[in-house]
Simulated assay, not measured.
Amino acid sequence: MLVHPQFDPVAIALGPVQIHWYGLTYLVAFGLFLLLARLRAAQPQFAQAGWTKQDVEDLLFYGVVGVIVGGRLGYALFYKPGEYLAHPLEILQVWKGGMSFHGGLLGVIGAMALFARRKGRSFLEVTDFVAPCVPTGLASGRIGNFINGELWGRAADPSLPWAMVFPQSGSLTPRHPSQLYQFALEGLLLFVVLWLYSRHPRPTGRVSGAFLIGYGSLRFTAEYFREPDSFLGLLALNMSMGQWLCVPMVLAGIGLWIWSGRAVGSAR
């Protein structure tokens, strides 16, 4: 079976300055967003609507703030509310780790709502624009998880060719490299589907709904291979916290998909 390579978490050391792999994956994520969003802005439906390079750069700024603030607050509220309520200042200690995708998503939604208001655009127009540019950033983040040897998978059959031992787990149990599963599913696969689907004009809200359904469904599936957080374990119905957070996400996506279709129909 395979053994996790035990990467040095520091990618580049220049004297006292240390650049961690995880920080580099965030930079890659933001760079990919900038590239893809500029391509989106050049598509006819958005170019005609007046989207500019400055809009893309502003979106990136709003998105970065939303991801960091929402991701950190989401982790504190969803995963360790008791601990952070007792020591609220520790929420600011982001260098100690602890980010939640679902919290980050809520943070980005709030940031996009503020961007839409200041730019005089509809909220769903903004989220439809952004949605296909997000999965590559998620993929980059999962590579960071793998390099750090964190968020490892559940125990796997030792005969599985890619079963991997993660020494960081404190055991020699072969496990699913669930970080790579998520990289492939909610990163690459979701990006390809959304990018191809959104190349042509769609009813307002339809691309956003597709993102919510797609990510929620793929993350829900990947959670069956990911080891639940040790301090939470499995919750009701033997589902992890990540799965429970995906349920309202998928339901919201389905509701948005149905609403966007009816809105088009009523407009006719």
Rank of each mutant, 00 (worst) to 15 (best):
E125P: 00
E125K: 08
V126T: 13
T127L: 15
D128E: 13
F129R: 07
F129L: 04
V130N: 00
P132C: 09
P132L: 10
C133K: 04
C133L: 04
V134K: 00
V134G: 02
V134Y: 02
T136F: 14
G137M: 08
A139I: 00
A139C: 04
G141H: 00
I143Q: 03
I143H: 02
I143G: 05
N145K: 03
N145S: 11
F146Y: 15
I147K: 01
I147T: 03
G149E: 13
G149V: 05
E150T: 05
E150I: 02
E150N: 08
W152H: 14
G153F: 14
R154E: 15
R154W: 09
A155V: 10
A155Q: 14
A156R: 12
D157Q: 12
D157G: 07
D157A: 11
D157K: 09
P158K: 10
S159K: 06
P161D: 14
P161C: 10
P161N: 11
P161K: 11
W162H: 05
A163I: 09
A163Y: 12
M164G: 03
V165E: 10
F166C: 04
F166K: 02
F166R: 04
P167D: 15
Q168R: 15
Q168W: 06
S169G: 10
S169T: 10
G170S: 07
G170F: 09
T173S: 04
P174R: 12
H176T: 04
H176S: 06
H176M: 09
S178V: 05
Q179R: 06
Q179V: 01
L180F: 09
Y181K: 05
Q182G: 09
A184L: 15
A184C: 09
A184G: 13
L185P: 03
E186D: 13
E186I: 05
L189W: 14
L190Q: 06
F191Y: 14
